[in-house]
Design a protein around this nucleic acid. Structure first.
Length: 911
RNA sequence: GGACCUUUAGCUCAGUUGGUUAGAGCGUUUCGUUGACAUCGAAAAGGUCACUGGUUCGAGUCCAGUAAGGUCCA
């Protein structure tokens, strides 16, 4: 076996093991009857995406779950893939074309799509490559893309089915229009942002009574040419007698518009009068419908004003038009005032520009299975972690609106609808849409395509990703489903994602699963996943969301180069508590790297300490232990190993990953390295204690590597082999991890009965060591090893000290530690094992020594007062549980004894 | 306007059903390279647990309210 190097160099180790895992097909998800499946489908990153810190966190957690599942003996399968990301990808390619001074229209639909496919072939796999660097153990042979032929077929099949089931309709309604992308958006793709703008007070003059005006407030004067009425509340006394009269439109082609009464007008807002512009506001549109008002659309798809806005405004951009409109109103004396105004404006999520409410023909989906989707989460068939997100989810479902699923893009799944040639698409009625002689809806298309024209629109990207948990495994093709094991792996076990896509994706997947999977079966069999773990959002030091545009996100690949993939994984998991946003700190990643180095060196120490024994299995190591030779340190470290194993078991079951990592960190660094390895150094000197000490190190290291492997897979695999825990050609994941009770049971089988008092004994030894060091540090003696200590103590305590003397001398850095009755004038410290004196009587400064003891005494006095107060409280004594009462009494006794000792020491000081 | 989250050491955060003297990492100060590790070791300083009130023998923890910051929905 090669000697372990002095420091851990991740680069080669990571490269080597990832290649080995791939060639061994270690990540392949296999249908294995008799084994429980454990399935995760990756939240497919956009093909345009590059790895961000969010991806690192998200995918590290998925990999941890998958690797832990493999270690637990489950048939684990992690399915990777990418999302075609309609708008995002089309935008990227269009931006490229713009550099060549071209638009997609210069190419035409077909040629443009070829360009996008070229782009995706060339650059679309980057993020999956990056995930490999991170160590992601995805079953790469199953990699899916939402535009793959098979997947596309599933998407279109679902459209046809939902159309046939009456869930899909075409309607001319108000949509959120993005003038930059020039497509409709769903409500979820609109981000409300507070904007400090201007509100314009505009007056309209009565045509029948010149000189009489009605005043309204608007933030959008450029839409005044689209006004078709002024609305007031019917019970508003200010406008008694006004309803039915007409006013002159303040801007645009000359027109008289009526004053109407509508209950929905808010009397409290402004003057209580509202201008009605049905083409450019959702509320206005509804009022317009109620009053059968015309619709005058003054905007083009690209956000420019059109001829209906009048010659002064036509051709202007909407924002320039707003300024111009204000000027024109002013000239005409119609502008009463401009006021600063803060309001919320909807922005396009992708293009980051204000959206326009726009009346267009679109395809809509009435969500299926809404009630069942609520029940699935409410009744606990699907568990959210943290649970509180279920409230957000349920609230959204309570208020759910139909989903606008059509997009005016080219990159996407083209809607499988054909219109009979010669029909005017804009004039189709509901009956026409459902008339197969006029509108054809099918997967295959019409038999006589020459007589039909296909719908231009494509589907919203999310209308493909909502099928991800089953369309990725061959659905709906029976043969493919069988080959890919859909029936075995579905429902998937856990979904790991961010709470920001709870509506976009999580809720919709639940509805899709319930609608399409295993019709007629129970709800547990139809849901797409059993657990949803919501990660926090990674923020920068200032608390801002990390984003490409802000440039505040470190490149994870740089971090991998600097700290290793394992260091990055360990660091990011350790700072990601359940459901809380994360403020990124690079030094935590550094501490992940340091932990790896610590682990490496502890294993190196084991290797240097003696010959390797039989490490081939847990049982082989256990049989090397001689329980009779155990001292309290051996008992204590094994107990801590068990309690840590139990804690990690619990953390994985409850999705508390940072707690798991912290438990392992504390156990390994503090309990094992700082204490057990240090005491080993003297145990290894004796032929009598050495074999058991080595076996215990092997036991702890073996089990710790198994517990750590899901978090830091590369280094644990490497050390596993370096220390001979696995046969050549096997992997650490070929071994099954035992939970705490199984490990305890195995130990019992080998005659190991752990002494529960050992932990307390070790704690008292640690205290003695720590206080002896402090005593030395106080007297600037940290480096010397030639000090002598004296201890005044009882027989029992001395027995403990004597039994561990060699270790104690080494740990305290002393040549001797002798028992004696009384030492005068030496610096001393009170411990549970007795009063420890530093043999330095001649060099001591009594004044400083007094100060030190007095300070400790003062602190102790406060604690005694507190304990006494509690115990003298009648209510406490009569109502507190006996164990608590007993604890308090013992505490007081100990504190008083310590006080007496300190007082004695103080008195004994000369001067 | 509605809902949710956060507020604990200089910084970032733990603190499980209320119960000894509230913890960790980083940072700071002092000391230390003796054969696992300086990517390290030892010691130390540092907190009226945002505020007010309540429940309780006992509150960082439970309840109500206030303040500040954040997120989502309208």
């Amino acid at each position: 076996m090669a000697e372990i190097t002095k420091s851990y160099e991740p680069r080669d180790v990571e490269k080597k093991w990832y290649a080995e895992w791939l060639s061994a097909h270690a990540f392949a998800g296999k249908v294995t009857p008799g084994k429980d499946p454990y399935t995760i489908v990756i939240p497919p990153p956009n093909v345009t995406g590059v790895l961000t810190m969010g991806h690192v966190l998200n995918n590290t957690i998925q990999d941890m779950l998958i690797r832990r599942a493999r270690l637990e003996g489950k048939s684990a399968m992690w399915l990777p893939g990418t999302d075609h990301a309609g708008i995002a990808t089309q935008t990227v390619v269009e931006r490229q074309l713009r550099k060549e001074k071209k638009t997609r229209h210069d190419f035409g639909r077909e040629k443009f799509l070829e360009k996008v496919w070229e782009w995706r072939t060339e650059k679309g796999g980057i993020i999956l490559e990056q995930l490999r660097r991170l160590g992601a153990s995805c079953d790469w042979d199953r990699t899916q893309f939402t535009m793959d032929a098979h997947y596309s077929k599933a998407v279109l099949d679902v459209f046809v089915k939902l159309f046939d089931r009456g869930h899909i309709y075409r309607g001319k309604r108000m949509v959120n229009w993005c003038p930059v992308s020039q497509t409709a958006l769903s409500d979820e793709e609109v981000i409300m942002k507070p904007v400090n703008g201007t509100i314009y007070r505009v007056r309209y003059e009565r045509t029948d009574a010149p000189g009489l005006f009605v005043e309204v407030k608007t933030t959008r004067p450029e839409t005044i040419p689209g006004d078709v009425a002024i609305a007031v509340h019917p019970a508003d006394p200010r406008y008694e007698g006004w309803v039915g009269k007409k006013v002159r439109r303040a801007l645009g082609p000359d027109a008289e518009i009526p004053i109407i009464a509508d209950e929905s007008v808010d009397k409290e807002f402004g003057t209580g009068a509202l201008k009605i512009t049905p083409a450019h506001d959702k509320v206005d549109f509804e009022i317009g419908v109620r009053h059968k008002l015309p619709v005058i659309d003054v905007l083009e798809a690209d956000g420019k004003l059109n001829a209906l806005a009048g010659p002064d405004l036509a051709g202007m951009d909407r924002f320039a038009g707003r300024k111009k409109a204000a000027e024109l109103l002013k000239e005409r004396g119609a502008l009463v005032a401009e006021e600063a105004y803060a309001n919320n404006v909807g922005y396009s999520e992708r293009a980051d520009v204000p959206i326009e409410p726009r009346l267009t023909w679109q395809w809509w989906l009435k969500y299926p299975r809404i009630e069942e989707a609520k029940a699935a989460v409410r009744d606990g068939h699907i568990k959210f972690h943290p649970e509180r997100w279920s409230k957000v989810y349920l609230h959204w479902l309570e208020n759910i609106q139909d989903w606008c699923i059509s997009r005016q893009l080219w990159w996407g799944h083209r809607i499988p609808v054909w219109y009979r040639k010669g029909l005017d698409k804009e004039k189709l009625t509901e009956a026409d849409i459902n008339d197969p002689t006029k509108v054809h809806v099918s997967l295959a298309g019409p038999a006589d395509p020459e007589n039909w024209v296909q719908e231009d629109d494509v589907l919203d990207t999310w209308a493909s990703s909502w099928l991800w948990p089953f369309a990725t495994m061959g659905w709906p093709d029976e043969d493919k489903m069988k080959a890919q094991g859909l029936d075995y792996f579905y429902p998937t076990t856990t979904l790991v994602t961010g709470p920001d896509i709870i509506f976009f994706w999580v809720a919709r997947m639940i509805m899709a699963g319930l609608e399409f999977m295993r019709p007629g079966d129970s709800i547990e069999r139809r849901i797409p996943f059993k657990h949803v773990y919501f990660t926090g959002i990674i923020r920068d030091q200032q608390g801002r969301k990390m984003s490409k545009s802000l440039g505040n996100s470190p490149d994870p690949l740089d971090l991998i180069d600097t700290y290793g993939a394992d260091g990055l994984r360990f660091g990011i998991v350790s700072i990601a508590p359940q459901g809380q946003d994360i403020r990124f700190q690079e030094d935590r990643i550094e501490s992940g790297k340091n932990f790896c180095n610590k682990l490496w060196n502890a294993c190196r120490f084991r290797q240097m300490s003696g010959e390797a024994g039989d490490n081939s299995s847990l049982s082989a190591i256990l049989s090397r232990l001689v329980p009779d030779k155990f001292d309290s340190d051996d008992h204590a470290i094994l107990q801590r190993l068990l309690s840590t194993t139990r804690e990690v078991d619990r953390c994985f079951a409850e999705f508390e990953f940072s707690a798991a990592v912290q438990a392992l960190y504390g156990f390994f660094w503090n309990d094992f390295c700082d204490w057990y390895v240090e005491v080993s150094k003297s145990k290894l000197q004796s032929a009598e204690t050495k074999p058991t000490c080595l076996a215990i190190q092997d036991l702890v290291l073996r089990q710790t590597l198994l517990l750590l492997h899901p978090v830091i897979p590369f280094i644990t695999e490497e050390l596993w082999h370096q220390l001979g825990y696995g046969a050549p050609g096997t992997s650490i994941e070929d071994v099954q991890i035992d939970n705490a009770s199984k490990v305890a049971h195995a130990a019992n089988v080998h005659g190991i009965v752990l002494d529960t008092a050992a932990a307390a004994a070790v704690e008292s030894l640690k205290e003695l060591v720590s206080k002896s060091r402090a005593l030395k540090a106080d007297h600037n003696l940290a480096s010397r090893r030639d000090v002598k200590f004296f201890l005044t103590t009882g027989d029992r305590e001395w027995q403990t000290v004597e039994g561990n003397l060699a270790k104690l001398l080494r740990m305290c850095g002393a040549t001797s530690l002798e028992r004696c009755d009384k030492v005068d004038g030496a610096p001393a410290v009170v411990t549970t094992l007795g009063t420890l004196y530093l043999d330095l009587a001649s060099t001591v400064d009594p004044v400083a020594e007094k100060a030190r003891l007095t300070k400790e005494l003062d602190q102790l006095a406060k604690h005694i007062a507190g304990t006494e107060a509690r115990l003298s409280n009648e209510a406490f004594v009569s109502k507190a549980p006996p164990a608590v009462l007993e604890g308090a009494r013992k505490q007081l006794a100990d504190q008083k004894a310590k006080r007496a000792e300190l007082e004695r020491l103080l008195k004994s000081l000369v001067g």
